[in-house]
Amino acid sequence: MSGRDRAIEVAGQVRDPEMPMLTLADLGVLRGVEVRPDDDGEAVIVSITPTYTGCPAMATMRDDLVHRLNDAGFARVEVRVVLDPPWSSDWISERGRAALREAGLSPPGPAAHPAGPVMLTLGPPRPAPPCPRCGSAATRLTSEFGATACKALYRCTDCLEPFEHVKEI
């Protein structure tokens, strides 16, 4: 296995600190892994993008990437930020969506990407997602904001359990 393939494999296994059922690759924040020869061998350059601008987990992601790659024998690791294009929940992989469901979280639907003015939405922001625990369609929005920037809070009126929905952006 080439150094690049190995670096991609190691970086691809690092998990999101706030949703650890997802790898950074499945979440879509891992945007690139490059290996460049330098004076002492190889340096790894990893590119990540924030889910939300203020996401405080970026520093942890950076530290985790550096440590896992160091452990794998890459002594020099540089983590770069990619701002363009902005992260979209559409980038969460099928495997990631399955992992979210498995963990009792509701995966996002398709995001809207209007190029022009954004419509004001005074009604429900999206069709109510089915309960990830019991599958019931009888769910109600509790709050558009949750424990992390990327999640909304819902409640199932059948099984009465609360659950989190990863927001479309």
Partner: peptide, 27 residues
Amino acid sequence: DKVLAAVAAKGVKEVAYHRDWAGRWFL
């Protein structure tokens, strides 16, 4: 300016949620 354009593209998605929240509570 590519930095401003990128900050704006991301900010649009975030602030749209803020405006909707404020609009719903206003109503």
